[in-house]
Amino acid sequence: MSETRYAVIAKDLMEGIASGRYPVGSLLPTEFELCELYEVSRHTVRAAISQLQTQGMVSRRKKVGTRVEAAAPRGGYSQSLATVADLAHLAETQVRSIQQVSHFVADIAQARRLGLEPGEHYFCVSSIRVDRENALAPLCWTDVYALKQYSSVIELAEQHPGQLIAALIEQHFGRHIDVVDQQVRAVLLSAEIAKALNAEVGSPGLNILRQYRDDEGKLMVASETIHPDDRFTLVTQLKREKAQG
């Protein structure tokens, strides 16, 4: 799925703000200048700026311009995810800190919930992820599940905290991720998860189950991530298909 042009521009502007290219308090280039810079229409530029406004990063005033208000999206971390590459990029902005590793044989309940094969041997890497800019408020708790045959990736995950475990399996075992199935649901933070994330017990959270599959549909990796509700916003976009004929 390719991103729309304005979403690409919005992402580039967000990166420019985060890097200091457009410091907080400064003005973004004018609409006309952005149109020339990205070679797009004013409508496309306005749609991109609207995304930044929605996330509290900029404000707009007549005869003044678009002012940078914050270096990061409001309400924690906001991310538009449309491809496997987007997931990999998201991981690069965060640091994984492994909390525990376990090995187990999947029972029927685990298999049904996670998409595993009952009776198969798996390992689970449990970790917290923190934004490089704010280590005091971890973004999430993640449990990553994979077959025992990939267990050597555990050491690699410790050595490369900015890479997805699924991506490390791709690189070192010659596998290829073709699709990621994603399920999102609301949860309340358990005492264990809340303590690890410096959050309030019983407060709302976002649970994201991702199943990484190869081109035959076979499960390579499953991950279950829990975010406190104020630290992550998942942004998706639905695009109407063009009529045929």
Rank of each mutant, 00 (worst) to 15 (best):
L52E: 08
R5F: 08
H103Y: 15
P204H: 00
I17V: 13
E36L: 15
E241V: 13
E15G: 05
C140G: 01
A191F: 05
G65N: 08
K148P: 03
T93Y: 03
S152M: 06
H43P: 00
S190E: 05
R61G: 04
A196R: 12
I193W: 09
A82W: 13
E31A: 13
A10F: 07
S50G: 11
S152W: 04
T236C: 03
G115H: 00
V187A: 02
M14Q: 15
D12S: 10
Y150D: 01
I128D: 04
L238H: 13
K62H: 04
A135R: 10
G75F: 10
I208K: 07
V58L: 11
F173P: 07
Q55A: 10
F32S: 15
G16C: 10
T54N: 00
E170R: 07
A196C: 10
F104S: 09
D131C: 00
Y22P: 04
R74E: 03
I226Q: 03
E15L: 07
V153D: 02
S59Y: 00
A199Y: 01
T66W: 07
F232T: 02
S41M: 04
H103G: 09
A137N: 14
Q79D: 06
V221K: 00
Y122Q: 08
T4K: 13
S223W: 02
T54G: 05
Q110Y: 13
L188Q: 14
P23S: 13
T4H: 08
P73W: 04
V40D: 08
E69V: 09
G174Y: 09
R46M: 13
I17R: 07
C35R: 13
K148D: 15
T83I: 12
D143A: 09
V105C: 11
Q55M: 12
A111N: 12
T142R: 15
G25H: 08
L219S: 01
Q182P: 10
P73Q: 06
V201A: 04
G162T: 06
F173M: 04
V8M: 15
G174R: 11
G16S: 09
E15W: 03
A71V: 05
